[in-house]
Computed example of a mutant assay.
Amino acid sequence: MSTDKEELSIEDDFVTADDDVEPQVEPAKTNLSKRRTIDNLLEERRLQRQLADFDYDL
């Protein structure tokens, strides 16, 4: 740590976000449908791997 006292320049040109604006919240229905889509894709991949690994010469 330096003990020198240096003058720091502060820029007043930057724009701050308004405190009144709340972030956009997605409805639970949208999140649930996205989750179901992801689950279905993962299940399909799992089943395709099982088919690829299946020994057809029983």
Rank of each mutant, 00 (worst) to 15 (best):
Q24Y: 14
D57K: 13
I10P: 01
L42V: 07
I10Y: 06
T3V: 10
T37F: 07
Q48D: 02
E7M: 12
E22V: 03
E6P: 02
V25H: 09
E11Y: 07
Y56E: 09
D53V: 05
Q24R: 09
V15S: 05
S9I: 12
D57F: 05
V25Q: 11
K29L: 11
T3I: 10
Q50L: 09
M1K: 06
K5Q: 08
L58R: 12
K5D: 05
R49A: 09
I38L: 12
D19Y: 00
R49F: 00
L32T: 14
N40L: 07
T30L: 01
K29C: 00
N40M: 05
R45P: 00
D13T: 15
L41A: 12
F54C: 10
V25G: 01
E26C: 00
F54Y: 15
I10Q: 09
A52M: 01
R36F: 09
T16H: 06
D20I: 00
L41E: 11
D18Y: 00
V15C: 01
T16I: 07
F54W: 11
R49N: 08
N40A: 12
R49I: 10
S2T: 08
I10R: 13
K34E: 13
D39N: 09
L32H: 08
V25R: 07
K5A: 08
D20V: 01
D55C: 06
L32W: 11
T30H: 02
